[in-house]
Design a protein around this nucleic acid. Structure first.
Length: 520
RNA sequence: GUCCCCGUAGUUCAACGGAUAGAACAAGAGAUUCCUAAUCUCUAGAUAAGGGUUCAACUCCUUUCGGGGACACCA
């Protein structure tokens, strides 16, 4: 029985008990106390019921507890002002560790997303220049979010939407031709060798080179693999945008004004209507994006689509959401906005890339840091904080940075396992009763909850935090409990425990796309 | 002006509305006859300010002050 199941079990036990004693239906929330002294799980309903029925919460808690009988718990404690704390039986925990050893790389796999298709679209930076740290932030984020969904049982597609159409391509062309309308500059523009005089054609070719020679290489260095590279120009060529606009027209959701065609997005809680076809008959970016999403839902049949955008696109969320809703896919699109990134070197923000004359790029970081470090540092922070990338910690004090701390735990385990001859399957972990050992087991089992929670709320920073916690718990165990001891049975049981730890560490590192070195 | 994100320890970040606000780096003190000291143990240190809701607020509402972003027939 995993800790997720235990949570569910507590919920139903407590709810049943309330029904019996207080004749009420109550939705119970099972809490995970921060303090170990408060048990493995806790419930605070007695406080709510006590308040509502004007009885002492402590009495309510006692009544609830009376009706709960389960082998799952070592003890159930009632603590003032009315918390009920559950301490899970160590027998159950030990059994569960055995399933970790059996499941190996499958440990942590859930069925939450079974039968559902989900798409994560991320980065999607314009092919007009190298990936900056800003638009690169979506790389690790989207990649790992996709991994979490996979682990949770979804069928996942990772997609990059290439904006190879429109004004920025023209601007790129002018920039390469270095005429008066040039907009982009820098060493990378000078390096683009494109023949021709037509600015748009030159721009198209330039964009192709930038995409293939710069962006894709950076993506590759970050260890990201996309399932789909979708080109905006394809939508234009195939007339998909016209079809989409036609659909909206039929629904009477458009109107003409000053020569342009508008979409009544205010019908869907947008603050203003949006243009689909400009006065000069060109289609707007939004028109294309709505068509793209029509394709995602209609053709590819995604149950859910998550777009990861930079915070500067905040203003566009409402328009696209309105479009998606108009097409009948309300609530299937979610947009996650990532706040800006600054790189701090010696406490001072680094703004510009040295070589390229652009904003500081992902490659600038990757030149000096491994993708392991870059990914980990990006993932540590929640999406809506402005991320200050601490370059000094990432680089100069590398032996003290959290990535190595986690990897070191893995390497330590590998090193012990190498020294041990043959490891036998354990029947039971009867000899492992030290505080450190039990703690480590509990920490391992939390992995499933981490996947569950993260697949629901998308708070990715939980993953690296968990990795650090697991490493900390292991290092503590390592300090106090010798694995390779004389007693053969104790040795074997401990070997199995660190094997389970190793499996879990590997799984969490894989999830983050960070390597797990056997030696350091 | 309107809208969004943020303000937590010296610094970078955490904390389903729950119990004593957690880490890491930096600072100070200690631990190695033993599986990798890239480790462990201990000490000191924080919710921007004011109201409100709640049995319970970093978390929700509100005002103020700060930082960032968005307000296109650009993408």
């Amino acid at each position: 029985m995993s800790s997720m199941d235990i949570r569910k079990e507590i919920k139903s036990l407590v709810e049943d008990s309330i029904k019996k004693t207080h004749k009420k239906d109550f939705t119970v929330q099972v809490l995970k106390p921060k303090d170990k002294a408060h048990g493995d799980f806790a419930v605070s309903v007695a406080l709510e019921i006590g308040k509502e029925m004007k009885i002492n919460p402590m009495d309510v808690a006692l009544d609830i507890k009376k009706n709960i009988k389960s082998e799952l718990f070592k003890k159930i404690e009632i603590v003032s002002p009315g918390f009920i704390n559950f301490f899970v039986s160590e027998k159950i925990i030990k059994q569960e560790i055995k399933t970790v050893l059996k499941e190996k790389e499958k440990f942590g796999n859930l069925e939450i997303g079974k039968g559902k298709k989900i798409q994560v679209e991320f980065v999607s930076a314009n092919p007009t220049g190298p990936l900056t740290v800003g638009n690169g932030r979506g790389g690790p984020f989207g990649d790992v979010l996709g991994n979490v969904f996979k682990k949770a049982g979804y069928k996942v597609e990772k997609a990059y939407y290439v904006n190879d159409f429109g004004k920025q391509i023209l601007s790129l062309g002018h920039s390469i031709l270095k005429d008066e309308e040039a907009k982009y500059s820098g060493e990378y523009i000078d390096a683009l060798k494109v023949k021709g005089n037509d600015a748009y054609e030159v721009g198209k070719k330039g964009a192709e080179i930038i995409l293939n020679e710069m962006i894709k290489k950076t993506i590759d260095k970050l260890g990201i693999k996309y399932d789909e590279w979708f080109f905006e120009s394809v939508l234009h060529k195939k007339g998909e945008i016209d079809k989409t606009i036609e659909t909206l027209k039929k629904k009477d959701l458009t109107y003409e004004n000053e020569g342009a065609l508008w979409f009544k997005s205010t019908n869907f809680k947008d603050e203003r209507d949006r243009v689909l076809i400009k006065e000069n008959k060109e289609k707007t970016y939004l028109a294309g994006d709505i068509a793209y999403h029509k394709y995602k839902f209609e053709k590819k049949k995604f149950d859910k689509v998550i777009n990861i955008w930079g915070a500067d696109h905040f203003g566009d969320v409402a328009g696209l959401k309105a479009g998606v809703e108009a097409l009948g896919y309300k609530d299937k699109l979610e947009v996650i906005l990532l706040q800006f990134v600054t790189v701090l070197k010696d406490g001072v923000p680094v703004k510009m890339s040295k070589r390229l004359g652009t904003a500081i790029t992902m490659d600038d970081l990757l030149e000096e840091l491994s993708s392991d470090v870059v990914r980990f540092f990006f993932l540590e922070k929640s999406a809506n904080t402005h991320l200050a990338f601490n370059f000094n910690l990432a680089k100069e004090q590398s032996e003290k940075n959290p990535v190595f701390y986690v990897q070191y735990a893995y390497a330590r385990i590998s090193s012990i396992l190498k020294k041990a001859e043959n490891i036998k399957t354990v029947k039971e972990f009867s000899l492992l009763n030290e505080k450190r050992e039990i703690e480590l087991m509990k920490q391992i089992l939390k992995f499933k909850e981490v996947i569950e929670d993260t697949s629901m709320d998308h708070q990715l920073q939980r993953i690296p935090q968990y990795a650090i916690d697991l490493a900390t718990t292991f290092h503590g165990f390592y300090q106090d409990c010798q694995v390779l001891v004389e007693d053969k049975e104790l040795k074997n049981q401990r070997l199995n425990l660190i094997l389970a730890t190793q499996i879990t560490l590997k799984n969490v590192l894989d999830l983050m796309g960070v390597s797990a070195p056997e030696k350091m």
